[in-house]
């Protein structure tokens, strides 16, 4: 029997075909509005409306509050020990991942899934200036 899984959707990947949705198409999914973040960054209503319209086209539950707490609670409601989420470069996302896993029952897993890269091998490129990056990857980017 497959273990119970939930998907945690966040603002860096609101694609209905994202890796988590492809990996577990039937898993219950949640998005949580980060109340603290919205206030800290004074996010305007028009951004909230835009994001909400994106959310309405996803098969998810929408909640608000403390993100980590809400995700852990959602997992508990579904007796899930496995959480899938999309990769993000944001340090806050990494912090939330750590907080969530700390509050999940022992043996739980949080899997951060990556989308296919725009270009491969760019890890070795010196990122000091765009031109260096582009010269190194242009051929691949245009394939």
């Amino acid at each position: 029997m497959s273990e119970s899984t939930i998907i945690w959707v966040h603002g860096d990947n609101l694609n209905p075909h994202s890796a988590p949705f492809q990996t577990a198409p039937d898993a219950p999914a949640i998005f949580v509005w980060d109340d603290a973040l919205l206030e800290e960054w004074r996010i305007s209503l028009k951004r909230i409306v835009f994001i909400y319209e994106c959310l309405l086209e996803l098969p998810i539950i929408i909640r608000r509050g403390d993100v980590a707490e809400e995700v852990v609670q959602f997992a508990r409601e579904h007796e899930a020990r496995r959480i899938l989420t999309s990769e993000s470069p944001s340090p806050r996302h990494q912090f939330l991942c750590q907080t969530i896993i700390k509050h999940m029952p022992k043996g739980s897993r949080l899997e951060v899934l990556r989308e296919p890269a725009f270009v491969d091998g760019a890890e070795k490129v010196d990122l000091k200036r765009f031109s260096r990056y582009w010269n190194a990857v242009k051929k691949q980017a245009m394939r």
Binding site: R42, L45, I48, V49, F50, I51, E53, C54, E57, R64
Partner: peptide, 25 residues
């Protein structure tokens, strides 16, 4: 609904963009 849920945001700046969110758009 969102004005009511996020009153501070609406108060700071009430505008809504014509650009719609979502995969279809």
């Amino acid at each position: 609904y969102l004005q009511q849920e996020f009153p501070q945001a609406a108060q700071r700046s009430p505008h809504v963009s014509e650009t719609r969110g979502g995969r279809r758009a």
